[in-house]
Amino acid sequence: MALGGLLGACATEPDLEAPYDPPPPTPASAAYQLGMGDQLVFEYCRRQYPVDEYCLGIGDLLDIQVEEHPELNEQTRIAPDGTISFHRLGQIQAVDRKIEDLQSEMESRLAEFYPNLRDSVPKVVVFLIEGDQEAEKFVEMLLRNPNGASREFAISPDGHVSLPGIGAVRISGLSLVEAEDLLNERLQRHLPTLELVLNSQKLAQNVFSVLGEVLRPGVYDLTSETTLVEALAKAGGETEYAALDSVVVMSRMPDGVIEASLYDLEEAFEHGHSLGLVQIRPRDTVLILRTGIGNVNEAIDHFIRRNLPINVGVGYNAVYRLND
């Protein structure tokens, strides 16, 4: 009885005339940005490709039919020089042309070489029997590998992966979708009937890299708290050409900005400063510059543009902070 009275007292009648105020949308979480050490699986596969968009290639087998003149019908394969030979028409350039374009030229040349056809030029129809021989050879090459059409690679310290049929491409700093789009754009420049499906195998969140004038440059696991000096030690220490007064730690901030902090470890060691105790964060890049560099800011900028990931379409922004 008391519970019913309490519920009745708290209940309110809804105002059906009031405008509906929807709840705020749930903020979308930022897409994961790929980085050094991430293990990715790349799967090559066929894709649907419209025949009318296909550009003919060497080795393609064509079935050429001339309406109402079956005596002219024949199959021919595009030769290594990119041409086909068709009766009295001689050599016709076929590579890198669309089928419709080839048909039009053949119809024009039929009227030129067969005077009896000038009054009513017959329609030429070209059927693609075997196409994209370059892709066939490429797939055969892939299948010789025990992994078949799949490949597994880790993103290198400079943000690149090197893939068959594509070469080296920098994908660090991109999302999985952005990386897949970029790689397919590169692949389909010369293998348009193939596509690449990208999946994450292991995302290396807790790693850092040490590059430049160290004995063992590379990617290292960040399994526990690691100071700048400890990071340098993990990379085998500095080379004889290292400029310890110009040690750079680069971090990508959540907004995509690359923050580059410059440390003078030489002075820190001499005067007992605590700079060497600076903590390395996940996916930081430590760069040991070479002695003799005049403009440190310019060197940092040059390194970032050449080696560190810059998001496509986001723009470049770097912050440099010189530590006192």
Rank of each mutant, 00 (worst) to 15 (best):
A2C: 05
L3Q: 12
G5M: 12
P24S: 02
A28T: 11
A31N: 09
G35C: 05
M36W: 03
G37A: 11
G37K: 11
Q39V: 12
L40F: 10
P50Q: 11
V51G: 07
G57L: 09
D60G: 09
L61C: 04
I64D: 05
P70T: 00
A79F: 06
G82E: 06
S85N: 14
F86I: 13
R88G: 06
Q91L: 14
Q91C: 04
D101S: 15
Q103F: 08
S104Q: 15
E105S: 06
S108V: 02
E112H: 08
S120D: 14
S120V: 13
P122N: 12
F127V: 08
F127K: 15
F127W: 11
E130F: 00
D132P: 01
M141S: 11
L142H: 09
L143F: 01
N145T: 08
P146R: 09
A149Q: 11
F153G: 03
P164S: 03
I166L: 11
L174E: 15
A179K: 06
L182Q: 14
E185Y: 14
L187T: 13
E195M: 12
V197R: 13
L203V: 09
L203M: 13
F208W: 04
V210E: 03
V214F: 00
S224P: 00
T227P: 12
A231S: 11
G236I: 00
T239Y: 04
A243N: 12
L244W: 01
I258F: 00
A260E: 02
F269G: 06
H273K: 13
Q279E: 14
I288V: 15
L289V: 10
G292T: 02
I293K: 04
I293L: 04
G294I: 00
N295W: 02
V296G: 00
F303S: 02
G313P: 03
A318C: 11
Y320M: 14
R321M: 03
N323L: 14
D324P: 15
